[in-house]
């Protein structure tokens, strides 16, 4: 469902994403794990067609952006890292706008939206989005993406700003969607979240994919040299230089 080959993005001299090969199949939740500045957001932007790759090929649902831009955009859902919406619309108006512009089937979308709102505790739809806090915006953004039940979902650091309960609900909801055949691609810089929520994890550092596999495979990889997966993550992302500090802190 999500396919990328030799994906590269250069910003002048800086190679933000370096020859990335990715594949996420239907029913899978893929976690894209890496430290800040690793190139996760840049990768999502390229995959979702708002940033042109310097090199490489992308296919979503068997289509490519050049020819089927609108069809792809209609089929996928994206939750960007910053939940920015129109400040001068009320939550409910924003939802109605999304529904209208994606031509979503009314009744079932509304039904799903109401369920999600209940689950997330969204009870501020009649207020202007400009008055929302970060977390409130994030939840509304998630709700308006999930209500459409897209077949491919991209989430960029979706748990940032979410309370524990909402994060849990998000996890369950994504699982349900994956079980119904959706492909889900989410980024995070927190190992724990990737561990808990994802079927398969790719670790990216400085634009390069340096390890990939499911939890068992990654654990296997780490057993040879390290005690925990965390140590592996730190080592892979160059964090071992800070190991002393971390050890000191955790004492």
């Amino acid at each position: 469902m999500i396919y990328a080959k030799q994906l590269t993005k250069k910003f002048g001299e800086l190679v933000a994403v370096n020859k990335l090969d990715l594949f996420v199949k239907s029913g899978e939740i893929y976690g894209f794990l890496g430290p800040n500045g690793a190139g996760k957001t840049t990768t999502i932007k390229m995959l979702t067609g708002i940033l042109k790759p310097t090199e490489g090929e992308i296919k979503l649902l068997g289509m490519n952006m050049e020819n089927d831009e609108i069809a792809i955009k209609r089929a996928i859902g994206v939750v960007p890292d910053e939940p920015r919406m129109y400040d001068n619309l009320k939550g409910i108006e924003f939802m109605q706008f999304i529904m209208e512009i994606y031509k979503s089937p009314r009744e079932e979308t509304v039904k799903r939206f109401e369920d999600i709102c209940k689950a997330f505790g969204i009870d501020y739809l009649d207020k202007f989005i400009g008055d929302y806090s970060h977390g409130m915006k994030q939840k509304l953004m998630l709700a308006t993406v999930l209500m459409r039940q897209p077949r491919v979902v991209f989430l960029d650091e979706p748990t940032v700003g979410l309370d524990a309960r909402s994060a849990k609900i998000l996890k369950l909801w994504l699982r349900k969607m994956a079980n119904n055949g959706a492909a889900i691609f989410m980024t995070t810089h927190v190992l724990e979240i990737a561990e808990k929520m994802c079927d398969r994890i790719g670790i990216i550092n400085e634009g390069k994919l340096i390890a990939e596999g499911n939890l068992e495979e990654l654990k296997e990889l780490s057993k040879e040299k390290y005690e925990t997966l965390e140590d592996l993550f730190l080592e892979l992302t160059g964090g071992n230089e800070f190991k002393d500090i971390i050890d000191h802190l955790s004492e």
Binding site: I70, K73, V78, P80, R84, M85, Y86, D87, I101, Y102
Partner: peptide
């Protein structure tokens, strides 16, 4: 006001 909500406008199917 459109770009304050960026990248949302880029994701809309139009």
């Amino acid at each position: 006001s459109e770009f304050l909500s960026w990248p949302l406008p880029a994701y809309l199917p139009l």
